[in-house]
Computed example of a mutant assay.
Amino acid sequence: MFKKVIVAEDFDSINLGIEQALRDLDITNYQHTKYCDDAYLKIRKAIIDNEPYDLLISDLSFKADYREVKIENGDKLIEKVRAEQPDLKIIAYSVEDKSHRIRSLFTNSDINGFVMKGRNSIDELKKAMRLLSTSELKYISPEISSVLQENNNYEIDDFDVLIMKHLSLGTAQDDIRDTFISLNIKPNSKSAIEKRISKLKDFFKANNTVHLVSIAKDMGII
């Protein structure tokens, strides 16, 4: 079982549940932080002191407050921590249900587990810790695993990224069309651009173009 654990979670009520799960597994050496910046600094210091953590449990979304932060969400924390300590076991613990975001965590940051917060999440968290402490297998909450396994043939390409970059700059669709025509980027008809934006919103489950841009930025696509 894990010997030294750090938890990045900004809600006290959820932290209490995680702490109970750790105690149930006889894990007594743990710390929790409410800010990703603090978690990252603690992990770096532990490495320098030659007393590294062997498990990080992190939420993905952190509510902004009066404090200015450099690492604003769990996705970026996990990315930075993975670069610092490649062998650290990482569990993302979140209400996130967007398959593309979860898949990105497994593919790009090589997380070891994803537990979805819910009615049975504490029991799931304990199952994940038991599994990850004794094997190199991955743990995924049952309610999201089927979504991740769905066959989705749509792939994001350079054309999609270019459109989203223009949207992020506040460029109107007519102006995107004119830019594409001037640069001989095809397809460049207004209807083709509208259809591609619609596909992107469906793929990312975005409510509107602003939401689409926000998701793309969170994932580091633009």
Rank of each mutant, 00 (worst) to 15 (best):
129 M>D: 05
121 S>Q: 07
119 R>Q: 15
25 L>T: 05
23 R>L: 10
162 L>N: 09
182 S>K: 10
171 T>D: 05
11 F>N: 09
220 G>A: 14
42 K>D: 04
148 L>R: 04
85 Q>C: 12
220 G>F: 13
176 I>G: 04
78 I>Y: 00
212 L>S: 07
222 I>N: 08
39 A>G: 11
63 K>G: 03
151 N>M: 07
44 R>H: 08
36 C>E: 02
143 E>D: 15
160 D>H: 13
89 K>E: 10
162 L>E: 08
190 K>Q: 14
206 A>Q: 08
215 I>L: 11
191 S>G: 04
66 Y>F: 10
194 E>W: 09
183 L>T: 09
49 D>T: 11
56 L>T: 00
101 R>L: 09
132 L>T: 00
188 N>S: 13
152 N>A: 05
91 I>W: 02
84 E>R: 11
156 I>M: 11
119 R>A: 15
73 N>M: 06
21 A>F: 10
106 F>W: 12
81 V>S: 05
204 F>G: 00
215 I>Y: 00
74 G>V: 02
78 I>W: 03
109 S>A: 15
150 E>S: 09
177 R>I: 10
91 I>L: 05
47 I>T: 06
88 L>T: 05
154 Y>K: 08
53 Y>C: 06
96 E>M: 03
10 D>C: 08
154 Y>S: 10
5 V>F: 07
165 K>Q: 14
180 F>V: 03
43 I>F: 09
204 F>D: 00
120 N>E: 13
156 I>C: 01
127 K>I: 05
216 A>C: 15
6 I>C: 01
109 S>N: 15
188 N>C: 09
5 V>N: 08
83 A>F: 13
47 I>N: 09
163 I>H: 01
87 D>M: 14
196 R>D: 03
140 I>Y: 03
29 N>L: 12
42 K>E: 04
94 S>C: 09
210 V>F: 04
105 L>W: 02
63 K>M: 10
6 I>Q: 01
23 R>W: 12
24 D>T: 07
41 L>W: 11
32 H>G: 01
40 Y>W: 11
167 L>T: 01
144 I>F: 01
192 A>Y: 08
3 K>P: 00
89 K>S: 10
175 D>G: 06
188 N>D: 09
165 K>M: 09
193 I>W: 12
123 D>Y: 07
47 I>P: 00
80 K>R: 14
206 A>P: 03
28 T>L: 14
218 D>S: 15
4 K>A: 05
144 I>G: 01
5 V>H: 05
120 N>V: 03
140 I>F: 00
26 D>L: 15
176 I>W: 02
32 H>A: 11
201 K>W: 00
75 D>W: 08
205 K>P: 04
69 V>M: 13
1 M>C: 00
216 A>K: 02
31 Q>T: 10
211 H>T: 08
76 K>D: 05
208 N>E: 06
55 L>Q: 12
100 H>Q: 14
165 K>F: 05
200 L>D: 00
72 E>H: 10
83 A>E: 15
163 I>F: 06
2 F>C: 03
46 A>I: 05
10 D>K: 02
106 F>H: 07
72 E>F: 13
134 T>L: 08
